[in-house]
Write a protein that binds this DNA or RNA. Structure first.
Length: 363
DNA sequence: CAGCAGGGGGCGC
DNA sequence: CGCCCCCTGCTGC
């Protein structure tokens, strides 16, 4: 695997680098690849193809150095009784005829093998396809389902929509359709799930399989009514359950959900699950494609991408030229640079400042 | 009712 | 900026 990484880093889209490795590790086949020669290509034909082919004499191994092929001269010198172009089982009047015969009958199966990988191929074209799909760093707009590469993200989406309409969407554990592209997901749901979703919303294109779910959707999305009012605060919501949960979060002192690994306790199972994920999960399935960072949650990865790898700065300060990637950063900037309110007063003296941190530093 | 997704904030480095 | 937690909207069952 180390060899693969080296090749990627050197030149991600270059067969030459991979070939150079093959040269070192796989002898004759690799040398042919490294020199750009076509070794046993199925489409090799005629004198020109014969010239580019490196063949091996059944009795003397590789053809003489410099020739790169089983040359007529070698046959004439070493195997004078064999005829102009000879195989132990076949004699041809032309080099190309012999070549075609050897390609068809004797070329070693699976001669093209990628290092450290079980798959081997019978032709260089197949090996190249294998390398493209499995070992090359994918181009930014390369289709994940075939070898096609697109010029833009829009083209890639269009390609997937046209050629792989069902590939980029699937159901998660809760039966919900998920996919990285909303457009593709929508098409997937229209084509695959529409038959299951009998209840359609009259206000939007939402559809579901249960009447009760549609009722919930109408309440949440198309109603302004919030009949469930909290008696302790201003919170109001659309469902009884949400009010119950609110009371648990906001107004309950009971913490029946105790973490088995530490002292953490909380009022809801959801929070406990979240805690377990952040604090006690060792698995980090969400790997950043730009750096080595791996996250425990999809959310964590999303935030990391925003902080570290996003070049867009949609949050522009209205007071100065400052722009940033997150709303949080802008808020922090406004507080430090443009706020005149000094909410934090030192208990020991008259010093006042905009942030709690400043107080602590000065103390 | 459970769970997912996501916004927001505190805290420490 | 990463980690962690709180909280809520919304969906599926």
């Amino acid at each position: 695997m180390e060899a693969q990484v080296e090749a990627h880093d050197a030149h991600p889209n270059s067969l030459q680098n991979i070939s150079a490795l093959l040269l070192n590790q796989h002898g004759k086949v690799g040398s042919a690849l490294a020199s750009g020669e076509a070794v046993g290509d199925a489409d090799s034909s005629g004198a020109s193809s014969s010239k580019n082919i490196r063949l091996e004499c059944s009795q003397h191994g590789l053809a003489p150095a410099g020739a790169g092929q089983l040359q007529q001269q070698h046959i004439d010198l070493e195997h004078p009784t064999s005829g102009p172009a000879h195989c132990s089982k076949y004699t041809s009047n032309s080099g190309s005829g012999l070549l075609q015969y050897i390609n068809a009958e004797h070329f070693l199966e699976n001669s093209f093998k990628f290092p450290d990988y079980e798959q081997s191929c019978t032709a260089r074209k197949s090996l190249q396809e294998h390398i493209n799909s499995n070992h090359m760093r994918r181009s930014e707009h390369q289709c994940q389902f075939c070898l096609n590469s697109c010029a833009t993200d829009a083209d890639l989406k269009q390609h997937i929509l046209l050629h792989h309409p069902q590939r980029n969407a699937q159901k998660n554990l809760r039966g919900k359709c998920v996919g990285s592209c909303k457009e593709i997901l929508h098409k997937h749901c229209l084509s695959i799930c529409s038959s299951m979703k009998k209840f359609r919303c009259s206000e939007c294109d939402y559809a579901c399989s249960r009447k009760q779910t549609l009722k919930s959707h109408l309440l949440y999305k198309h109603s302004t009514e919030k009949p469930f009012q909290c008696t302790e605060c201003d919170y109001a919501c659309t469902t009884k359950w949400d009010l119950k949960r609110h009371l648990l979060y906001k107004h309950s002192t009971q913490k029946p959900f105790q973490c088995a690994e530490c002292n953490y306790a909380c009022s809801t199972k959801g929070n406990l699950n979240s805690h377990l994920l952040y604090k006690h999960s060792t698995e980090k399935p969400f790997q950043c494609t730009e750096c080595n960072l791996a996250c425990t949650t999809k959310k964590g990865l999303k935030r990391h991408l925003l902080y570290k790898h996003s070049t867009e700065k949609p949050f522009q300060c209205a007071e100065c030229d400052f722009a940033c990637t997150t709303k949080k950063a802008l808020k922090s900037h406004l507080l430090y640079k443009h706020s005149t309110e000094k909410l934090f007063q030192c208990a020991e003296c008259n010093f006042a400042c905009t942030t709690k941190g400043t107080i602590l530093v000065n103390v």
